[in-house]
């Protein structure tokens, strides 16, 4: 279930309690318990899920932290791609915007 229009100041969260992940060569099958749906994630989308487990983050914060974690430059990992991926993940129920 998507959260509606995504804005830059939204902070995103996830919880490892809600899914089961299996890793296959830097890609991940993720079974979401609530929906009984299975998703195929790459290192970026799964990285967003794991990054947001401990602390809620905006797209800007996520892009910065993921660049550091995966040793990527601003050009290689753009904030636009992070926002786009957040939108895709929002549809899966793996992440959700934190309510104030």
């Amino acid at each position: 279930m998507a959260a509606g229009p995504i804005t830059d100041d939204m902070k995103w969260r996830s919880s490892s309690d809600g899914y089961i992940a299996t890793e296959f060569d830097d890609t991940y099958l993720v079974f979401v318990k609530a929906s009984a749906e299975t998703h195929f994630l790459n290192f970026l989308s799964f990285g967003i899920v794991t990054e947001t487990e401990s602390v809620a983050q905006t797209a800007t914060e996520l892009a910065m932290n993921l660049r550091r974690r995966f040793e990527l430059t601003d050009e290689e990992l753009t904030q636009e791609l992070v926002s786009l991926t957040l939108s895709e993940l929002d549809d899966t129920g793996l992440i959700w915007p934190e309510t104030v």
């Binding site: 970026l44 990527l72 990992l77 786009l84 895709e88 993940l89 899966t92």
Partner: peptide, 18 residues
């Protein structure tokens, strides 16, 4: 990974749902 990110910018989905 860098190659995948380029493909993502070009429109390849980062999440596939069964």
């Amino acid at each position: 990974r860098r190659n995948l990110l380029k493909l993502g910018v070009a429109g390849m989905p980062m999440v596939l749902t069964l």
